[in-house]
């Protein structure tokens, strides 16, 4: 490899359930037939990619976010911490300071601006990271604890783990959360290329147009894969043409594919045309990402 930096492909979509995980898992397994690849599930609220692989668990760790902890003995009740917290995560109740971890963004302002050093930052578990291996495929997922509300710090830490541990692997695929808000931005902002998966329906088109705006705001190169092609109408294809967005592949609507997915099975081996699509998608990403760096 002449390029030491791994190629990072993020797979995203505005609308949920369009086939992000189907594409991520099949593409990763296809690449792993010949090359080492790492698949990272960043849909930490509902991570599903792991359901499609049986691998050996090689590493597992708890992921923490930093929150302040009140030290009653040092506190002078000056009230600065409650004033500097923009998230109302630190409040004073009579002679006590209360911290609401779920509101805290870990900005450290209360802790570092406390004149008495009475709010040291301590780690609080928000989720788990797991790392599996099967053949040439490495699979890493982040999994948010139920009741935890902030996905972004866990996404960020999962990416850091991958960059550190699998910096030598030439291709990394990131299965991103649905939507267009902060978790998606976090999951896609370091990618060399983003694939937006959509379906040819009014909901699919509407949410695709939001995802396109998001990718343009991030200045990311991206292309579209149309899943369940054949249902709905042609408006997604027309939209892509008018907006000059490359359509990398059209995956046909086929009940058999839905059935395989429902059982947690990969499908590209059963459908030669899809295997061909995967190879085209990969080729395009490699070409685009190289072009983008040159």
């Amino acid at each position: 490899m002449t390029d030491p930096k791994p190629l990072k492909i993020a797979i995203a979509s505005g609308k949920g359930g369009t086939g992000k995980t189907t594409l991520s898992t099949n593409l990763a397994a296809y690449i792993a037939e010949q090359h080492e690849v790492v698949l990272v599930d960043l849909d930490v609220e509902e991570p599903n990619s792991g359901l499609f692989f049986k691998g050996e668990l090689i590493h597992e760790e708890a992921i923490f976010k930093m929150i302040p902890q009140w030290d009653e003995k040092k506190c002078t009740l000056c009230g600065i911490c409650t004033k500097v917290c923009n998230y109302h995560a630190v409040i004073q109740l009579g002679p006590s300071i209360l911290v609401f971890p779920e509101l805290c963004h870990s900005c450290y302002a209360c802790s570092e601006l406390c004149p008495a050093a009475a709010l040291p930052m301590i780690p609080k578990k928000t989720g788990m990271l797991r790392d599996f291996q099967t053949g040439k495929l490495h699979f890493v997922d982040g999994r948010l604890d139920i009741g935890e509300e902030q996905a972004v710090p866990l996404i960020s830490k999962t990416k850091k783990y991958v960059a550190h541990k699998y910096g030598h692997v030439s291709i990394a695929i990131f299965d991103s959360p649905p939507g267009t808000s902060c978790p998606v931005m976090e999951a896609t902002k370091d990618a060399d290329f983003v694939i937006l998966v959509t379906e040819p329906t009014p909901f699919g088109l509407h949410d695709l147009s939001l995802a396109v705006e998001t990718m343009r705001a991030l200045h990311k190169p991206f292309g579209v894969v149309v899943n369940r092609y054949g249902i709905g109408n042609d408006e997604v294809i027309t939209y892509c043409r008018e907006e000059n967005i490359p359509v990398l592949a059209k995956i046909p609507n086929n009940r058999k594919i839905a059935e395989l997915y429902s059982s947690g099975k990969l499908m590209y081996q059963d459908f030669p045309e899809i295997k061909k699509s995967l190879s085209q998608i990969l080729e395009y990403c490699v070409k685009e990402a190289k072009g983008g760096r040159a």
Binding site: T21, E45, E46, N48, L51, F52, I146, G147, A258, Y261, S262, S263, G264
Partner: peptide, 17 residues
């Protein structure tokens, strides 16, 4: 929900909530 491995997996998580 839908009858798929993902559907059930996600249903369980959201029901916990």
């Amino acid at each position: 929900t839908e009858p798929s491995v993902s559907g059930l997996h996600d249903l369980k998580r959201v029901y916990e909530l």
